[in-house]
């Protein structure tokens, strides 16, 4: 009897706390369902329909959209371009970011100045800076080709030729993402215990390279993995520069995944078909995240 009497107010207090918890979380839960879960489910469902905006009805077409995707040359081109862009931007921006971070970390003076300069592109409006880059890349009046001409090199029509447009966009992408990767690497570098470097020196790691291989690189493992994932995801999401500068051209040479989805869904209004593409896009993100969380995670966290 006594114990029940003791428990009663506690149970009541627990219930009250649970009720308050629900109340506090309710707006978030509602919005989460409304703006994330429901639309995600909807996009998967729409991927199996022939829904087009402006037409009233739609019907389920099974995997027809996906079958069409496989044969769609624009979509294949777009996937390929996205892959090439990612394959250029991710490694180059990471290597540059790591190199700059190491140089800045080793430098005692003007650390903050250099960090600010390299980080500036991250804080700048990409659409605006893309416009500046368009001017820099201009085949006749652009400073880059004018500069090359000083050395007698005839610069290409960077953004106007199908052979170079992806490289031009990649340069902008690298310029824009190095600063972000750099600050993450800097944070990773500062987190390495100084005593490990001291131990490495006493243990006989004479050169900078020895210490880098024995301490810096392994200790940066978690940071590197994280930066890799986020860089790939950001590269796969390239859209702003393409939309602003090339509209996928010339001749679909700069069609990328999000731009193709945008064209199909919001310009041609083929919502069903674009949804199937979106599902594909989402699948890529899921696979990337899965790789990060499961496979690689074990190898780089040492605890």
């Amino acid at each position: 009897m006594a114990s029940i009497a003791m428990d009663m107010p506690i149970v009541a207090a627990d219930r009250r706390e649970a009720r308050i918890a629900w109340l506090l979380a309710a707006p978030a839960i509602t919005l989460l369902f409304l703006f994330i879960l429901l639309p995600t489910l909807a996009v998967i469902v729409l991927g199996f329909t022939d829904f087009e905006l402006g037409y009233g009805g739609f019907r389920f077409v099974g995997f027809e959209n996906y079958a069409e995707l496989i044969g769609d040359r624009t979509f294949r081109r777009s996937l390929w371009n996205t892959a090439v862009y990612t394959a250029i931007v991710t490694p180059v921006s990471m290597v540059l970011a790591l190199a700059i971070a190491l140089l800045i970390e080793a430098e005692t003076r003007a650390k903050a100045f250099f960090r600010t300069v390299y980080f500036l592109p991250v804080a700048s409006l990409l659409v605006a800076m893309a416009t500046v880059w368009q001017f820099l890349f201009h085949p006749t009046i652009g400073p880059i080709n004018t500069f090359l001409a000083e050395f007698g090199i005839a610069g290409p029509n960077w953004l106007g030729a199908s052979g170079t447009v992806l490289y031009g966009l990649s340069i902008i992408g690298i310029w824009q993402s190095v600063g972000f990767n750099m600050v993450l690497f800097l944070a990773g570098l500062t987190a390495i215990p100084r005593e490990l470097y001291a131990a490495a020196e006493v243990d006989g790691a004479r050169s900078w390279l020895d210490r880098f291989r024995l301490v810096t690189w392994p200790m940066l493992g978690p940071t590197t993995l994280f930066v890799t994932t986020i860089s790939i995801i950001n590269s796969v999401k390239v859209f702003e520069t393409v939309k602003t500068l090339t509209e996928g051209g010339p001749n679909k040479a700069s069609e990328v995944l999000l731009f193709t989805i945008y064209q199909e869904g919001f310009v041609y209004l083929r919502v069903g078909y674009a949804s199937a593409m979106t599902v594909f896009f989402l699948a890529i993100l899921v696979v990337l995240m899965f790789l990060q969380y499961r496979v690689l995670d074990r190898k780089v966290h040492y605890a």
Binding site: V43, V271, T278
Partner: peptide, 16 residues
């Protein structure tokens, strides 16, 4: 799960 889903993925249904 939500962290995985960018606006680009939910844009179509939201737009409709």
């Amino acid at each position: 799960l939500g962290l995985l889903v960018p606006i680009h993925a939910t844009a179509l249904p939201l737009y409709v």
